[in-house]
Design a protein around this nucleic acid. Structure first.
Lengths: 234, 234
DNA sequence: TATATCTATTTGTATAGTCAAAAGCGGAGC
DNA sequence: GCTCCGCTTTTGACTATACAAATAGATATA
């Protein structure tokens, strides 16, 4: 493994693991030069690569800092179809509909590739934007990965935001589907049974362990995902 | 603008414009060094950045080549829910349901940000995978951007694939929605009216001009989008 | 003929330096 | 107080060079 890759992954690991948190300062180049006994070019290359991936932010004179995570932006760029307006200026609130601690069932355990007896926090949450139901959030939080979730009531902070503060960096897999609203979902979202809904499922890992699994169900007549992509590697 | 950026954008432009096509060889480093009168490090940095973005492929001894476009993979990573299998090994065919040349209407022109009298080729196409309807493709091709579409019958090659050969590199915007199948859509897709369908809209540009606008409508009970994302810049 | 070896080419990584640009900081002058 | 100036730190871009690794193609050998 090359020096440049070692520096890159060392810093990436510190960020992903939460050891260095958003806003934290990264050693300046000459410190890393001393630490790794290499030239400044090599350090610079590693830091530039991290900056290009959006993991750190670099500023002259002040140094380099851990960036804020953007995982939510990646796919959660939800647009309100009726207004086409950005989220700014919208009134958002949420209600916890259910909260219980239990063990994973056999089927779910298989789905998440986690042991069947793993303790989890199961949440159900309704998001309301401008007075109208916007999404049902059905979430599973792995308690061994995020033990502090056991004491958190989520009364004043939505689970997604809270988790981001606990586990700021991670990898995620998304699945987007169209589903028909069942009776319960339709009632909660105040729409008709059978209505087309957009479902976003996200499973999040940190260091190879599942942190959370969540499904958002949006009323299809009101919401969509949008994004600009250009071809990329990986 | 730095030398490294100039080399990068020069090559990117040649690829995006179709001047250099997938598989074409890129000048080796020492040729670019001579052309830009700079050091090899600078050329190497530009080429490495292009490789990281997936626009070129680099191999020792043989040189660097324009990569194959991946825009379809970005979001079109469609999984068959029932089989969860990859596309390989599935029998795919398609039928052209409609093909006509006309001028953009006022409403559509506004939606695409194109002049209202622009000549377009309008296509409707049904995709069938393993004998079952998989998607309706409703496509608009801008004839001034792709004049050769006028003579193409699309009898033996699907429009998306054909376009990729004509206009291999481009930028795209995607919108994903859930919609209820109307009567016509339901009949074509052999599903029930009102059934939840997943709709993917993609608008593609080349050098700032719209190339094509397409909407795929998939039966929601059979298909989904999936992808692994990690936080990225831009 | 088939296989092993050599050679030339091209990319990959690294060094040790230079100069420049951005920006925070403190001090001089008003 | 405020503005302007120069100093210093840190990143950004670049050079010229070196050696290593991969490998396509030519050459030599069994």
């Amino acid at each position: 493994m090359s020096i440049y890759q070692r520096i890159f992954t060392d810093i990436e690991t510190k960020i992903i693991s939460g050891d260095w948190r958003p806003g934290d300062r990264i050693p300046v180049e000459h410190e890393l030069v001393a630490e790794y006994r290499c030239s400044r070019m090599t350090v610079s290359k590693a830091l530039s690569a991290l900056a290009e991936r959006g993991m750190i932010v670099r500023r002259r004179k002040t140094g380099s800092f851990v960036a804020s995570p953007q995982i939510d932006r990646t796919v959660m760029d939800i647009q309100d179809i009726s207004t086409e307006a950005e989220l700014a200026g919208h009134e958002h609130r949420f209600e916890i509909l259910a909260r219980k601690i239990e063990r994973l069932g056999e089927a779910e355990a298989q789905q998440l590739s986690e042991p069947a007896d793993a303790e989890v926090l199961r949440l159900q949450c309704l998001h309301i934007v401008d007075g109208r139901p916007n999404a049902i959030e059905r979430r599973i939080i792995m308690l061994d990965a995020v033990p502090r979730a056991r004491e958190e009531s989520f009364a004043s902070i939505p689970p997604g935001k809270w988790l981001l503060e606990q586990v700021p960096w991670s990898k995620a897999k998304h699945v987007i589907r169209a589903v028909s609203a069942d009776t319960v979902t339709a009632r909660i979202l105040q729409t008709k049974r059978g209505e087309a809904c957009l479902s976003l499922i996200r499973q999040t890992w940190q260091n190879g362990r599942t942190v959370t699994y969540v499904e958002f169900t949006h009323p299809g007549d009101r919401f969509q995902f949008a994004g600009t992509f250009h071809p990329a590697a990986n």
